[in-house]
Amino acid sequence: MTDIERRLRALRARAPRRLLPSILAALALGDAYTVVDGPVGPLYVAWNDRGVTACVPVAAVDGPFEDAHPRHAIRVDEPPPWLRGPLDRALATGRLGDLPVDLSALGEFQRLVLRKCAEIPPGQIRPYGWIAAELGRPGAARAVGTALARNPIPILIPCHRVVRTDGRIGRYAYGTEMKRELLRREGVDPDAVEALARRRIRYVGSDTPKTYCYPTCHHAARLSADHRVAFRSHAEAEAAGYRPCRACRPAA
């Protein structure tokens, strides 16, 4: 090899590592993923060119994420700029905000359930039946539970804010203790929630104006003790002349 040939060969460079995930994402052949700090430890976050496709606590995965992810997955050091800002904001605020998510691999009912779930503000909880009622399917609480149990983007889509209809915290894909800890981080005391549940109190009413709320609704949280009324059922509240709160829309 002549000197000039050797010098030309030395112009060979390595392609930036972000290219492969970007190409596979553009062809819908795979997702890129990275590790970010979450509210209760590091998270794997995967995405394609349409948005986030998965979020999994690192501690919950045995072995490499590539093996646990349903599609081809390639690790990158950090999310691309279009994703990074919205993702940081979503993790900081507990709200999905402008974070794009790709739920296109899911069925229509599950997509609706997850979109509705994402409307629950941080620090508040709703029963499965609330999502069912909001979707106009009041009998579908059990199907809602199944849809949430298979949430591919937990934490970012806050299925930990959905609890059993009797008020108990209920199960979580990554264990009840993680669900309770996620709620504590948002200012919800799971023990207090379950204490109310044991007394079979499901709603809290305010006497002026006469409205009733889920106990974690921000209207209920503002009430002082002498303006606070407890109800065990929708019927009990309605019979006492109370109307459902327009913010949390307690379901029957």
Partner: peptide
């Protein structure tokens, strides 16, 4: 296909940097 990209991306990138004169264009 991912392996096709893995094997050939460096060569195409290196050539494209010279032919386009810009590494953003090359990407």
């Amino acid at each position: 296909f991912a392996d096709v990209v893995r094997v050939y991306q460096d060569g195409i990138y290196s050539g494209a940097v010279q032919l386009t004169r810009d590494r953003h264009d090359a990407e």
